[in-house]
Nucleic acid binder design. Structure first.
Lengths: 116, 116
DNA sequence: TTCATAGTTCTAGAATACTAGAAATATAAG
DNA sequence: CTTATATTTCTAGTATTCTAGAACTATGAA
């Protein structure tokens, strides 16, 4: 992972609205959630919401897919893992702690349940 | 961990100079590194360096201890673990992935070698 | 079509953060 | 005490980000 990419992701998460958005999506799992539903749940006006969702997407932390009139957003776990790995790279190169390989298991899809 | 604390830490890391600083200290381990040495290694002017080290310390990501004329800075792994845990809290509450308890082992001190 | 719904883009004002020179402070050495 | 070194605080100019109203676009229903 390149430094700029890591900074983009950290900056994306370093903002109250976006952090809440992301965590909400993390909880939701692979199914994702419509923009409107997120905005309603968090009490964020539509333009502000769109601004932040776009930021998260540009940073690669969430993905979006249109479903009818709605747009479903979902957290991208892979991106998160990459970021965590980058942050702890060469951790204690002096010999302290182990590299702790795959920090987090990726979400196992629940029996390939298609989301229309 | 409180939301504001997480945001402070993410914001602290979401900046090129500070991210480089932190990663350098992560590599250094518990020994830490004098401010001047870091600044020289990264080519950052002293006032700028101080500004960023202070930001990292306020965020709880690094600790500082004076040693003679120098001030030694060191990464705080505990803080990092807390942050990672917060980011993935309730990961896939729908039932996907496991909580992945202690994401990273804390750095084992190398035989209690005191750093004056 | 025409209407309603779901989201996005445009916009500009308010707030916050970054940089680095100059000056100040603490420690140590002579 | 005087000087040198290590780092911090003060400062101001520049740049970036956040917010939300108004206007716009896309999809689906009647």
């Amino acid at each position: 992972m390149k430094e700029q990419e890591a900074i983009d992701r950290l900056a994306a998460l370093a903002q109250p609205t976006r952090l809440a958005l992301f965590r909400r999506l993390v909880r939701r799992g692979a199914e994702g959630m419509a923009a409107g539903a997120i905005g309603e749940a968090l009490g964020v006006p539509a333009p502000t919401l769109s601004f932040h969702l776009t930021a998260l997407e540009r940073a690669g932390l969430v993905t979006s897919t249109r479903s009818g009139r709605s747009i479903l957003y979902a957290a991208d776990y892979r991106a998160m893992e990459e970021l965590l790995g980058y942050l702890l790279e060469n951790c204690c190169a002096d010999g302290g702690c182990a590299p702790a390989a795959p920090l987090v298991a990726p979400p196992r899809a629940k029996k390939a349940k298609s989301v229309p």
